[in-house]
């Protein structure tokens, strides 16, 4: 059984819970005592991940950290359809890799702003917000053109990929960090599409959407 070292309010941990839920893979949560113990920074946890951050998975002794790396591993191993990480299609795979790197940017801006507001992390809020807006403009335009081509997801093709999962949490929780999505209508439509995926689960701060019409 997969063990996920997890914290409910962490977006990077949420990305793992979301993919595991969509792929319907059972796992065991190991709740990290973020507060007051800062357990992930402690000596014990550093034996698991010397970088002292979560999420980390332990899949029957195979230990992996870094949110986006774990998504790659989980999709490759537990998605029999091969659609979430399309290794058989070099072009789509390249796009997925590119947007996963882009998601590092949204994590370091949009999600960092949220950590500052909600949990008092010492980040430069204005710089984080400005950075997030720069990235959201790019992503909104990209998704708008995808829609113009009759496609719904970040990477080309008919089905969503882990690039959607990697980006979703940062975008969907951005207003927590004071980043309005007024200017990004295509981004707002895409977050709702993700929320309507079978197996979708949310986290605190994400508003439920109505079901798609029959």
């Amino acid at each position: 059984m997969i063990r996920l070292y997890d914290y409910l309010l962490s977006v990077n941990c949420y990305k793992q819970r979301l993919l595991l839920s969509i792929l319907d893979v059972p796992y065991e949560r190991v709740d990290i005592d973020f507060y007051p113990g800062w357990e992930h920074k402690g000596a014990e946890f550093r034996k698991i991940n010397p970088l002292g951050h979560i999420p980390v998975i332990d899949d029957d002794g195979y230990v992996l950290w870094d949110a986006h790396a774990i998504l790659v591993y989980l999709a490759c191993k537990y998605d029999p359809s091969g659609s979430w990480y399309p290794t058989s299609d070099p072009q789509r795979l390249g796009e997925v890799a590119s947007w996963m790197l882009f998601a590092e940017g949204t994590t370091n801006t949009a999600s960092a702003a949220r950590l500052h507001v909600n949990l008092g992390y010492d980040f430069d809020l204005e710089a984080c917000q400005a950075g997030a807006h720069r990235l959201f403009r790019v992503l909104d335009e990209h998704l708008w053109f995808r829609e113009q081509q009759g496609q719904a997801w970040v990477a080309s093709g008919e089905s969503p990929t882990i690039a959607d999962i990697a980006l979703f949490g940062d975008v969907a929780l951005s207003e927590d960090g004071g980043i309005s999505r007024l200017d990004y209508p295509a981004l707002r439509r895409w977050t709702e599409r993700v929320q309507r995926l079978p197996g979708f689960i949310d986290m605190p701060g994400i508003f439920p959407v109505a079901k798609a019409p029959a």
Binding site: R181, L182, P185, R188, R189, A210, A212, P213
Partner: peptide, 15 residues
């Protein structure tokens, strides 16, 4: 808004 922005079961944010 653009008419095409108003997809079913969605709320567009505008100002």
């Amino acid at each position: 808004a653009g008419c095409a922005d108003l997809v079913p079961r969605h709320v567009v944010k505008a100002r």
